[in-house]
Simulated assay, not measured.
Amino acid sequence: MRFNPKADISKGRVSDAGGRGGGGGMSGGGMRMPIPGGMRAGGGIGGIIIVVLFVLLTQCTGGGGLTGGGGTGVDPQGQSGNPAGLSQDSDRYANCKTGADAETDVDCARKAVALSLEDYWAETLPAQGDTQFTPAQIITFSGAISTGCGQATSQVGPFYCPADQQVYLDTTFFQDVLENQLGGQGGDFVEPYVLGHEYGHHIQNLLGTMSRVKTQQGPNSDAVRLELQADCYAGMWTKAASGGDGIFLELDQGDIEEALDAAKTVGDDRIQQAGGQRVNPEGWTHGSSAQRMKWFSTGYEKGTLEACDTFSASTL
Rank of each mutant, 00 (worst) to 15 (best):
P192Q: 05
T215A: 11
Q185F: 01
D188F: 08
H197D: 03
L195S: 07
G184I: 02
E191K: 05
L195A: 08
V213F: 09
G183I: 03
T209N: 13
L182M: 04
K214W: 07
L195E: 12
R212H: 07
G183W: 02
Q217M: 14
G184M: 01
S211A: 15
G183E: 00
Q216V: 14
H197Y: 14
P192A: 03
G208H: 00
H201N: 10
E198R: 11
L182C: 01
R212K: 15
G218D: 05
Q217D: 02
H202R: 09
G196F: 11
H197T: 10
N205C: 15
Q216H: 10
H202K: 12
V213G: 07
F189L: 04
Q204F: 04
Y193H: 06
E191R: 08
L207A: 10
L182N: 00
V213Q: 06
G184P: 09
K214T: 11
V194T: 12
H197N: 10
L182K: 03
G186S: 01
Y193M: 14
Q204Y: 07
M210V: 09
V194S: 01
V190I: 13
P219W: 05
E198T: 10
H197F: 12
G187R: 01
Q204K: 07
D188M: 10
L195T: 06
G218N: 05
G218C: 05
S211W: 07
F189P: 02
P192E: 02
K214S: 14
L206P: 11
L206I: 09
Q216Y: 13
V213M: 07
H197G: 04
V190A: 00
L182Q: 02
Q217C: 06
H201S: 12
